[in-house]
Design a binder for these strands. Structure first.
Length: 266
DNA sequence: ATTGCTTCCTGAGCGC
DNA sequence: TGCGCTCAGGAAGCAA
């Protein structure tokens, strides 16, 4: 469910609420949710030191050099409460802090996970990620270089987390619409000016979405269970008509729904 | 190496 | 009301 802006909104919320809190335990309510690869007891993890984001991954680091890697996939939510007083419908795990506050991990479809490593452990799936979409490493030169060698449609390439980390189905649709590029265009056929447009618009759209706390279509909520507001700024994803009057086309690309306007996007 | 299809899982929304 | 079908902000794991 969540893409970069939604994950960033969650990270911002967590920074506000849980830095400095000591983890005293993690309860698991569904199998295969929490994977502790540290060889250490959860009671030894210490206090939350920092929270970061790489692509759609949330990285929570602690004072005893542990990192908790959380991925929410389609329906995962993190919900923070000062007291353990709610019972989320699809609770998979909860983090208990020394002061009685709780972080719930709720996930309807069971696709998400919490993996725990020592700081020094190398994490394969993180190593394989491309540059984060908001980092300066995701530049015109970088994307142009990657794109020249690829035959896949530009939409599929932008969804590939090893090319650029953080984009998902909604934001790729919005970016290509605003860049006036057809999602079906073969990557290597884009010229440098078009690549520039993609990179520039990507950063602009993501920043604006973060400012509006992400996009809520159905499941996504921040850690206070509040919806985002960027759905009010969507121009193509989920739309029936383009502002030009043309019907929005809906096709499948690599198993995912693509929305585009055949008039405006070429 | 790159690509795209299938799969994991649950629930919402729709037509009948 | 209820059944069956399709669809969903993701990404591993395959096979070609």
């Amino acid at each position: 469910m969540p893409e970069l802006p939604e994950v960033q909104t969650i990270v911002n919320g967590l920074k506000d609420k849980i830095i400095g809190k000591e983890i005293i335990g993690i309860d698991e309510f569904r199998n295969n949710t929490v994977h502790n690869k540290t060889g250490r007891k959860i009671s030894e993890f210490g206090k939350i030191k920092n929270i970061n984001r790489i692509g759609k991954y949330i990285i929570i680091s602690t004072s005893s050099d542990i990192k908790l890697v959380v991925h929410l996939r389609m329906t995962g939510k993190l919900i923070f409460k000062e007291n353990a007083n709610i019972n989320p419908a699809h609770l998979r795990a909860q983090f208990n802090f020394q002061d009685g506050s709780v972080l719930y991990f709720d996930d309807t479809r069971n696709f998400g996970f919490v993996n725990i490593y020592k700081k020094t452990q190398s994490v394969d799936y993180l190593r394989k990620l491309g540059p984060d979409a908001l980092s300066c490493k995701f530049s015109e030169e970088y994307l142009n270089n990657v794109i020249q060698k690829r035959k896949a449609p530009i939409k599929n390439l932008l969804l590939n987390q090893s090319v650029v980390a953080g984009l998902g189905n909604i934001y790729v649709a919005e970016i290509l619409y605003r860049a006036k590029l057809s999602p079906m265009r073969k990557s290597y056929k884009l010229n440098f000016e078009e690549v520039q447009r993609i990179v520039e618009i990507t950063k602009k759209v993501l920043k604006k979405a973060i400012k509006h706390n992400g996009t809520t279509i159905s499941d996504y909520r921040n850690i206070d269970e509040k919806s985002g507001e960027f759905q009010n700024f969507l121009r193509i994803y989920g739309k029936l008509k383009c502002s030009c009057g043309e019907d929005v086309n809906k096709v499948k690309q690599a198993g995912r729904t693509t929305y585009f306007c055949p008039q405006c996007q070429t």
